[in-house]
Design a binder for these strands. Structure first.
Lengths: 219, 219
DNA sequence: GGTGCCATGTAAGGGGTTACATGATTTT
DNA sequence: AAAATCATGTAACCCCTTACATGGCACC
């Protein structure tokens, strides 16, 4: 479970954040690579306090509900660093779009294309939001202190990966749409349909990337 | 929840698979984009049968435990197609490597580099396994029937994405290692250290991709 | 007058992981 | 002799999501 480390990570750079503040960070800044809910954050903060990794303080506010702000302790910092230095497990991937695509031969070619366009749209939305968040945050950081820090390096590096991934996903959708369009007739199960063989010569007019993968199995 | 659709998807192309068979498919063929456990598959199959989406048959075996094989029903096929045609939700990403990297400013530069090398190694292992699985599966498909089908298009497309993602991840690790190496001194908190400003001119010798992102915030 | 923001939580239920249980055969 | 494969499950636990609960203030 990584949520607790995410919370400790944020508190390591922002002492005095509330659960509500953290949720906003998860929804914006950390959105490209992690997500969670308030109903998970509040119990987790209580748990972290029980363990002595954070300590809290209640801030009374007028015209707003009171809030509980958290600060990371030395014990918490050590706990976070130990996690960051521990052996990482191999990623456990669950990519719903890819699983769907994997079985898109079960619907018509037109429906498959329509779905791929929807996947593309979702990713475009993500890319746009990511660009906006990064620009806002970097501008803010620069205005506060224009010196380069390890923190900034890590932020830019991770966002570089996130932005790149969305761009790649969009391009993959486009490529796959083209592929389905090109081989649309394969979805029609007609009797007197000519078969296309899986061979270098038969796939001359297929997209290049498709040819390359097929070529790999021919020795 | 997508597991049930994954199971139905496999059964749509492989009638007569057991829970144990399905697990092997999840561990190999579907590994690049989904994973699960036997203790989740067995109850799910029972549940799918209760709903009438699959039906089972017990096969008695000698020298091996008896097995229960499943076939998808018409109702199950419709259920799968409806899911494939439904509006996809925006992806809920949880990328542990990226979350770790995001907070790697909390450990030393050397430790950060060491971690990034581990992430890279994990991804190289995945890439290798993926290549092997794809080659084996395509060769097998080709030997059974060398005609191109929508199923093959979808398999190749999804694997193209998976392979690409691993390659990209490996390159991103390399790029980030170089970045940390280049700015190693920033991790040392010395008093008389010269500050590097976040500006186009100060980052002349930074990696190009890093410059490009920083340039975006300068108007 | 309704929606949204601020702020903290509980409760219920579903999803997912690890451990436990069994036991014969095959491979190392 | 030990480990892996085949094969199906249950149980306990943790993680995660959705819904419920409360209530004042600001904005449209």
């Amino acid at each position: 479970m990584s949520l607790k480390y995410g919370i400790l990570g944020f508190l390591s750079e922002w002492p005095g954040a509330s659960g509500y503040d953290l949720k906003k960070e998860f929804d914006t800044f950390m959105n490209p690579f992690w997500h969670t809910h308030l109903s998970q954050i509040y119990p987790e903060l209580n748990h972290l306090e029980e363990e002595g990794y954070v300590h809290s303080e209640i801030i009374e506010q007028t015209a707003k509900p009171d809030k509980k702000i958290y600060t990371i302790t030395e014990k918490g910092k050590t706990f976070l660093r130990n996690w960051l230095s521990s052996s990482p497990e191999s990623p456990k991937i669950k990519e719903a779009f890819l699983m769907r695509t994997f079985f898109l031969d079960n619907v018509t070619a037109n429906e498959a294309i329509f779905q791929l366009q929807l996947y593309k749209k979702r990713r475009e939305d993500r890319l746009k939001a990511m660009k906006k968040t990064l620009k806002e945050r970097l501008t803010q950081i620069k205005n506060e202190n224009a010196a380069l820090t390890p923190r900034i390096l890590m932020i830019v590096s991770v966002y570089k990966k996130g932005l790149d991934e969305e761009k790649r996903f969009i391009r993959w959708c486009e490529d796959t749409i083209k592929l389905v369009q090109h081989y649309k007739d394969l979805w029609k199960k007609e009797e007197n349909q000519e078969e296309i063989l899986i061979s270098h010569d038969s796939l001359e007019d297929a997209p290049k990337w498709f040819q390359e993968i097929i070529d790999e199995i021919e020795d």
